[in-house]
Amino acid sequence: MAENLKKTSKEESVMTPDLFKKTFFRSFPLQACFCYERMQNVGFAYQMIPALKKLYPNKDEASEALKRHLAIFNTTPAIVTFITGAAIALEEKFKKAKEAGEECDEDSINAVKTALMGPLAGIGDSFFWGTFRIIGAGIGATMAANGSILGALLFLLIYNIPHLLIRYQGLKIGYKSGVNFLSSMSEGGIIAKLTDAAKILGLIVVGSMCASMVKLSTPLVFHIAGAEVVVQTIFDSIITGFLPLGLTLVTYNLLRKGMKTTTILWGMILIGILGSVFGIL
């Protein structure tokens, strides 16, 4: 890594090891000034500043560059460095081109940022929210429910080891391959395949969670012709865990039909209370 950077810095690259470190640490407070109006824009500009300072020491150019990077921006925080790296590479390229007398349109830097932030957020969300977090929290919560602090520690490790690795490598990859990195990867369809595989893993864990975390059973007992019929036993004899799975699938369908999460949330509490008042649940 350090060697590679030295090599590129010999070719007068803006990305020295020192700048790399600064940009990496500045990528963390991406959402510090989150606002509905332009979301993570100030955070994005903040991480560009070490590179911009180097490229544009004079006020007028600095002003243009800062304004450019205060445009609306929003992506998954853990993977933002891919875009930061690419944006720095573009700024550098454009500056050199301008000095060589070529005409170039800096707005295309924002176009690239905008083009990348959506797809990368899709990948980032399914990896970090749908996979690492679920596996970490699933394992962690099971251990913690038995009173072990290891659960919490394991959760942090399972999530943050890939998180920090990807954040670090992302800046490298993003910078090195500049604009071309995503198009070259999606040509081979690697990203799409990886996302599909990650989703499958996430779904298997989510399916297991239906069984281990959702708890729903009925104490209902019917007396028919003197015989006791325990309803839960009937459910259990068809398939164990029939009710929790059914509940999850019904909830999923309600969400898909556009019902709001808060409505479902309060609905469940209401059903719980009514159900226990009438002795159904």
Binding site: D125, G130, V214, K215, L216, T248, Y252, I264, M268, I271
Partner: peptide, 14 residues
Amino acid sequence: MLPALGIAILMQLL
């Protein structure tokens, strides 16, 4: 029952 809601939201994603 509430974990079912959380799980369903994740299912929408995956």
